[in-house]
Design a protein around this nucleic acid. Sequence first.
RNA 1: GGGGGCGUAGCUCAGUUUGGUUAGAGCACUCGACUGUCACUCGAGAGGUCGCGGGUUCGAGCCCCGUCGCUCCCGCCA
Length: 602
Amino acid sequence: MSETESLSSSLATSLRTHPCGALRAAHVGESVRLGGWVHRSRDLGGLVFLDLRDRAGVVQLAFGPDWSDAATLSSAAAVGVESVILVDGIVVARAEGQRNPDMPTGEIDVQVTALRVVGPANTPAFPVAPAKGDKLPAEELRLRHRYLDLRRAELQRNLVLRHHLMQATRRFLDARGFLELETPILTKPTPEGARDYLVPSRVHPGEFYALPQSPQIYKQLFMCAGYDRYFQIARCFRDEDLRADRQPEFTQIDIEASFITQDDILAMAEALIVELWTVGGVGTPPSFPRMRYADAMERYGCDRPDLRYGLELYDATAVFAASDLSFVKAAIERGERVRGLRVPGGATMSRKQTDELEQLAKGAGASGLIVLKRGADGLEGKVAKFLDATAADALALEEGELGLYVAGPDRISSPALDRVRQAVAQRLDLVPADGHEFVIVTDFPMFDRDPETGALAAVHHPFTAPHPDDVALLDRAPERARALAYDVVYNGLELGGGSIRISDPALQARIFGLLGIDEATAQARFGFLLEALRSGAPPHGGIAFGLDRIAMLLAGTGSLRDVIAFPKTTAARALFEGAPSPVPPQDLHDLSLRLAVRGGDA
RNA sequence: GGGGGCGUAGCUCAGUUUGGUUAGAGCACUCGACUGUCACUCGAGAGGUCGCGGGUUCGAGCCCCGUCGCUCCCGCCA
């Protein structure tokens, strides 16, 4: 309401006195001039009604012989939907029985005395005004005619929300002394793990810029330069395959600060998220629980656990070690474990449903899924006969419960049980629709080891500081060393993450060494960061949030395409403009490029 | 890179199971009627490369092969 009121005065121009959606009973008697799109029209013969729409809302225009001349009346009857018109008229109160309680402007009409069609519209490719029961047109059409899709109330709401989230972010960070600083779009190929988008240099034949996957190195340079609180609503680019929640160009709320600890960053990050969720109309607790990575993996099999429901994992190795299941005993003798979860009420699941769960577990690499139900007479299931009478109690299975177990190394059983847990929660409808469960996961490992090559890779990125207690582990058992890295998790989704960075050049060199990056390579790839670290680097760290995903969650939509004005398709195409596209041979020549594939009809 | 779904009028869909006359419906559109509608109503009309290419067949929207587009998922995305 307050937004509509403030729009009312600020949107007045030489061509209009009010935005359409702002008119109310208080305006009755005023002469107004309006501009907008014809939302719908109803021609009753002697009377014509047009619904006029702008971004503030919809108002009904009334045309009639007592106040409109014949020419105005006939052009009102003839104008097509989605045409842009300018009208002069008088705001009148509607008679009893003619009011529309479903419209904010439903108390009044604008009796039009003059009409000008300034932007006639062809019949739109798909309807902008929703009819009850109408399905959305195909995504392809919506993208191809994006200017029409963006006219729809739903997308306007989403983009307005996105705007408010961005402004709230700027206010919040500005108030805390953060400087909004920009970083280049044409950059050097980055140490991130995703593929880079490359841009050929005309001036330097054979050389390329990369579009940034994130401003990571630049924000550290800002810290070294003494700009001790930085933020940016930064566009990032990654040339990887798309998903409903993944676009090749996306926006991060990128934050970095100096002279801080992990707790400082996380307190600030919590407060920002609380602010954004408030803007989105969703209440949150003032601070979020913390969970160590190792605990998250042990209890949920996942580094971003969904805490809206229980179904925690537990260790059942001892029970199965006492069984006659040879394949399980063999696994246990190899030092592996049996872990699983109890599903209250799960004994009602059909064989077909539990088979599907097993397929999920196998799809995640597990060799199988042990399914046990506790009925009135004890354990049921394919392997029940290999377990003794005390097993049900030892497994803590109550009557009516389903137990699901995976034997194997944790690196297999965790992801398998994670999938099973999520699937069970969905099938049994255990996920509360209005649940809002945050958790901050800390103490991520520094490295993981490539199972084939045995090489270490940075879990976060190569500039992440090790946990001070684990520095000694770096040489002895680097895969056990924890990092000062953290993620903010909401309903099982990663909102953002970050780390404390290495500010000691000697330590940074050591980490590069562990990652197999030799000095020459390090110098070539990010020498300028190393030099900065050697030139007086403050302790610093930061965090980055996915703005698109946050907007998507708060808008209540399942697709990033609904909160991005001009998104790409899953094949990374922009259908409205037809990008990417072949370029004329001359352009390639100027860039010293020759195509190895034949490119289109250019 | 792999797997699933979808593609028929401007839009949303039916028709494909079991090949057989001229491919239908609702909305939108055009024309006509209508002075209080708000998804106006009523009457009439126009509108089709069944995504594209090839094949099987006397005959293909329907079966087969290929291909393109959109979408969901796996891989991938520190």
